[in-house]
Amino acid sequence: MSVTLFMTTMVLYLAGTVFFLAYLLRRSEALSKVSLAVTGIGFVSHTAALATRMMAEGHVPLTSFYEAMSFFSWALVLVFLGVEIRHRMHVLGSFILPLAFLSLLSAAALPKEVPTLEPVLRTVWVHVTLSMLGTVGFAVAFVAGIMYLIQDGLLKSKRFNVLYAKLPPLDFLDKLNQQAIVTGFPLLTLGIIAGAISAEFARGSYLNWNPEQTWALATWLFYFVVLMGRLTVGWRAKRAAYLTIIGFAGVVLTFIGVVLKGHGPVT
């Protein structure tokens, strides 16, 4: 059941991606409704998939990488729909949906079996949920950063093309970037603390400086500096856009590193 729903979701997100990209490149607004409808149905199906899996497993489905990626994708679409409802900013979908689809696709490539957890590790889902929600914040900041740089470039070079017409005002993107980091950073912080506590229970040490942990801490520190820079010395606009793009690239690399090493955060 849950597998069928995941496949349906994936197909719908793919369709949403295609529609949203077509929407982005055409002058007409007509495609926005279709894109949104497809995405909305995809989201419902995704929610159902997660719920089914949760009932099947008997706990929050966030213990494997596969589940973490799927949850990430779900939360990303949730944030998009939230922003969409508030600001009617369809064009955000043209950037978020591809990311959500790719996350789900990479989730599908990962093994689906749930690792058998030792009882002490049952709390690990707290760590994963919080870290993933923090990462969603960084992903939104990344998307806002890319959109910012495109619009900035178009304005500077005075190319008033379709993209220019579709992209939102610069300061909206900058605010979105800021809000995403301001929300994402505390969540990641809590996620890391929760992870450290779990690790203390599991292994008897908060931190053992393995490469993933080191990377995670480096990421945390990086976003800390980005956030402080914005709040104190005006690292906003173009600079914030660049920094959040670099930061998210770091996050993705950490993930890839962890996956390639072949073990999830539970081991």
């Binding site: 304005l155 220019y164 992209l167 610069l170 300061d171 605010k175």
Partner: peptide, 8 residues
């Protein structure tokens, strides 16, 4: 029109 593309 341009101002509206910079400021929301």
């Amino acid at each position: 029109e341009l101002a509206k593309k910079i400021f929301s």
